[in-house]
């Protein structure tokens, strides 16, 4: 019991077919941050916490070497951090009118790349991922099949990330795998 086995929902399963590569990102520390992000105080606290300008337009994300901050809603952000989630959460909670929850294991993150990426996502999502509509730096919560997902665009090549709840991860992965043959 000294070395407890850590698992991810897909146990790092991968897809590597013509035009599509899918990898599970493993254990990503994730914190759900809440607060009045329109307020000066809130933004200042967040800037100090993450060391970057954290003012976000709706459905965009921002990142530096240690953190990625996604817009989820007017008073909600998702933070991926290299830091210890408990202590980052506690520091955030110190700011007034805020909340933070460690949700590292609530979901997993799939990285999709390759020429078929957009067609694979379009097979399950009514959200338009055409580069003119969803560029690098944008993120969105939407539907993939019957799973709620957080999609983000990380490179034009293209590289997308899809965050999906633990219990839906197998479903989403199988979905991607099946349509990879069809597009």
């Amino acid at each position: 019991m000294d070395n407890p086995v850590k698992a991810t929902p897909l146990e790092m399963a991968a897809i590597d077919v013509d035009g599509l590569t899918v990898a599970e990102l493993g254990l990503v520390n994730k914190i759900n941050l809440r607060g009045d992000f329109d307020s000066q105080a809130c933004n200042a606290a967040l800037t100090e916490l993450l060391g970057m300008d954290c003012r976000l337009e709706a459905n965009t994300y921002v990142s530096n070497s240690a953190s990625t901050l996604f817009w989820l809603g007017p008073n909600e952000r998702m933070l991926y951090t290299d830091g210890d989630p408990q202590s980052v959460a506690e520091r955030w909670r110190a700011a007034p009118g805020t909340a933070a929850v460690d949700v590292s294991d609530y979901s997993t993150v799939l990285r999709l790349s390759g020429a078929k990426t957009r067609d694979v996502i379009a097979s399950g999502s009514p959200f338009d991922v055409h580069p003119q509509h969803f560029g690098v730096g944008q993120c969105t919560q939407t539907r993939f099949g019957n799973a709620s997902v957080l999609l983000s665009n990380h490179a034009d090549t293209p590289v997308f990330q899809m965050q999906v709840r633990w219990s839906f991860a197998r479903y989403a992965f199988d979905y991607i795998k099946r349509v990879a043959d069809y597009v």
Binding site: A58, N59, G73, P74, P126, F127, T140, T142, R143
Partner: peptide, 10 residues
């Protein structure tokens, strides 16, 4: 009002 135009199924 926050995200813009989206499909009804969302």
């Amino acid at each position: 009002p926050y995200c813009g135009d989206r499909d009804q199924t969302e």
